[in-house]
Design a protein around this nucleic acid. Structure first.
Lengths: 240, 240
DNA sequence: CGCCGGTTTGACATACTTCAAGAGAAGTGG
DNA sequence: CCACTTCTCTTGAAGTATGTCAAACCGGCG
């Protein structure tokens, strides 16, 4: 794994300070974390971790989007995780993971050496509690995702994906102008997320464009022209 | 929810003592747990919890099989969890859950009142650590399940399900005679597990019977006639 | 015995995949 | 700055796995 280390910005100024695994830490605890952290960057498309790699670091995503992918022997692949800023990579107590982690866009990670971090977990309830909470949130998300994979139509899958993106980018980033949303994944990656082929994804996106639900600036950038119709197409019923 | 309370058997004689959320507890800690626990039983088919119900109890499965199910507005349903003995029900820190829990067979639960249990979590690392570990195991399982739902064929799905059952029942129960395995679910429930229809499941099971992979005593009880062929049909490649 | 839920089996429909060709962007090197 | 390659995406035509609908079967139970 290519490591490009850089300096350690102050935790207090960190954009994910209040959502990441460190969210509940007080100032003292942040100092302890700063001692074992380092930043690493990856270009879009670069692998971050291969399945079975020894886990030297655990990390939070500071910027960018990463995907967790599982593949079958014959090459079929299924995405099983989509990590946005503040999400956590790695499993304390294991020294490897069961999927590949890939940078979908340029990614900045805040990495903690595993061993010291695991010791911190034992002594710092603020960190371990937050980690449990995040893990359970991920499990909830995985269960919604299972409904999508097992029971939704291609149209519903695609609409659900777009709607999820819109919601998460809205909450996440700077309160982005609704005009300026971007798909962080290629058609092929979206297909791996949804359990479809890239052709089907392409057809579904273009259908939503034709129906006036989405409006595309180019292949990546788009805006939602009719949010209600989008929501309707997800198969999840009325809002909330 | 119908509650049929019964006495509290000694933890020390509990069949799931070493695998459940209490696995790491010492004798003192077990005593504290015994103070807040009670047993409840459910008949096959009975609901244990409805989505949105207030979570009064958290529980471990002592005996039997329960399923977690999500449903869409129009009635499509997808199973998102299959709980066997020692598995845990409920999410500390939340007062409801996002899916239905149903007894697939007769079920015995070891229930803990939520509030006292949550207090125990804060003071007893042996419990919280074990809970984290179990949650992460469930997340790993959910990810394998996502590959199944998104990418496997009906034949692979069915074979994977049967193979998983064989493995878990072997590890779990009394080391059951390979002659005597039973599907704990109906065809319809299996279909909900696999993201298929019951007709397709029926056809796949009968195909495996015709091919000499499985041998059925009745609709539920079966034995694996050719384990290698079964494993092969899962799409997961050679053993381990 | 006769109902009843779970299951099997068949015929048909279709949503999605597969295969194939080509169009745009985007990068690369001369 | 323009060919040239390369990658992503679109679009069409054809194939197929799985769903849908419907009827019959079977074992258990009142």
């Amino acid at each position: 794994m290519d490591l490009e280390l850089s300096k350690r910005p102050k935790c207090s100024e960190c954009p994910i300070r209040h959502r990441a695994v460190c969210a509940r830490c007080d100032d003292d605890e942040l100092l302890t974390l700063e001692a074992i952290k380092s930043y690493k960057s990856f270009k879009a498309g670069e692998p971050i971790l291969w399945r079975g790699d020894e886990l030297v670091y655990l990390a939070s995503i500071v910027e960018g989007v990463a995907t967790l992918n599982k593949s079958m022997e014959d090459g079929r692949t299924q995405m099983v995780g989509l990590l946005l800023p503040s999400d956590f990579i790695g499993r304390p107590g294991r020294n490897d993971i069961e999927f590949d982690v890939v940078a979908a866009t340029d990614v900045t990670l805040c990495c903690f050496q595993r061993k010291p971090f695991e010791r911190l977990l034992e002594t710092t309830p603020h960190i371990s509690q937050r980690l449990v909470e995040m893990t359970m949130d991920e499990l909830d998300a995985a269960r919604d995702w299972m409904v999508l994979l097992g029971r939704k139509t291609a149209q519903e899958k695609t609409a659900t994906f777009v709607e999820m993106l819109v919601r998460r980018q809205r909450v996440d980033g700077v309160d982005t102008d609704p005009q300026h949303l971007a798909l962080p994944l290629t058609r092929d990656e979206i297909a791996n997320y949804l359990g479809l082929t890239l052709e089907t994804v392409s057809r579904q996106l273009n259908a939503m464009k034709k129906d006036g639900v989405l409006r595309f600036a180019d292949r990546r950038r788009f805006e939602v022209a009719d949010f209600k119709a989008l929501r309707n197409a997800t198969g999840d019923g009325a809002e909330y």
